[in-house]
Computed example of a mutant assay.
Amino acid sequence: MENLDTLLQQMAFIHEVDKLKYITRKTRLFNSDRHENDAEHSWHLMVMALVLAQHANEPVDILKVLKMLLIHDLVEIDAGDTFLFDTVLNHTNTETERKAAERIFRLLPEAQAGEFIDVWEEFEAGQTPEARYAQAVDRLEPILQNISNGGGTWKEHSIPYEKVIQKTQHIQNGSAALWDFAKALIDRTAEAGILRKEPTEM
């Protein structure tokens, strides 16, 4: 069979990324006690990105955005899910994630592996319109989840309002409209006493 080696490499990658379905995230499904897995998260982000694309600050190549959202969490097969509000680990591109990207994407034929790594790195850098918009959607989903669950992980881990704002405000880099919407939801949650505010110093 022509291109059998290529096909076998692609099949190995397809089998490997099935493991994403087993990576449990800290956030829960909307109005639910069940934690979502990374595959569900990636699917939901892609739907959101398609539906909300008109709200991006700049015109974007939506296919590239979808590629980013489809593959950006594959590194968690090796690295695991890092809670956005973790006080010990940074929710940023760690050396562990970079090694995971190399291992997982290198299962593919060389040209495809290079393309996937480039897309992953572009998302992580957050410097292009597509990456900024993709990151905005990635930060928006857990806000919606936590609010639907009466505070969700914010309440469970006693995350203050100020830290939620700090960790999510760069949504505005990809979409000012989505940030305005998200901040209004966060503010209402704080006003309702679900999300606590740190006392201000006199």
Rank of each mutant, 00 (worst) to 15 (best):
E130C: 02
Q112M: 06
A53W: 06
R103F: 02
T200N: 07
K167N: 10
E141N: 05
Q112I: 01
Q169A: 10
A177T: 12
E2N: 13
A113W: 00
H35T: 13
W179I: 11
L74E: 00
G80N: 05
I14K: 11
L185F: 07
P129K: 04
F13L: 13
T128E: 00
S175F: 07
H72S: 13
L20I: 13
L29D: 03
A12D: 12
L29G: 10
F123V: 15
N149K: 01
R132Y: 11
L74D: 01
I14S: 12
K64L: 14
E102R: 07
V88H: 09
V88K: 08
F181R: 00
V65A: 06
E201W: 15
A56K: 02
M11G: 08
E102L: 11
L89N: 12
D81V: 09
A136E: 00
F123L: 11
L108C: 06
K19I: 06
F13Q: 08
E76T: 14
E95T: 14
W43Q: 00
I165C: 14
I117P: 06
N37I: 04
N57E: 00
V47S: 10
D187P: 10
N31A: 11
V47H: 05
D61V: 14
A176Y: 01
D187V: 15
I165F: 15
W179S: 02
H157N: 06
L7R: 07
I77V: 08
L52P: 04
D33R: 10
N57D: 09
I159L: 11
A184I: 09
F105I: 04
N149D: 06
I147N: 03
E16V: 03
R132M: 10
A177D: 06
I117G: 07
I186R: 01
D138F: 03
D187G: 10
D86Q: 02
R34F: 04
R132K: 15
A56E: 07
K183L: 15
Q127N: 06
V65H: 03
M1C: 09
L107P: 01
F105V: 01
Q10T: 11
H41E: 02
E102V: 15
E36P: 08
T24H: 15
E76P: 01
R139S: 07
N173E: 08
L89F: 01
Y161V: 07
N57V: 12
F83N: 00
H15V: 05
A192S: 14
A134Y: 00
A113G: 13
R188K: 12
F13M: 13
Q9I: 00
S148H: 05
W154N: 05
F123K: 01
R28K: 14
T168K: 15
G80F: 03
K67I: 12
Q9A: 03
L107Q: 09
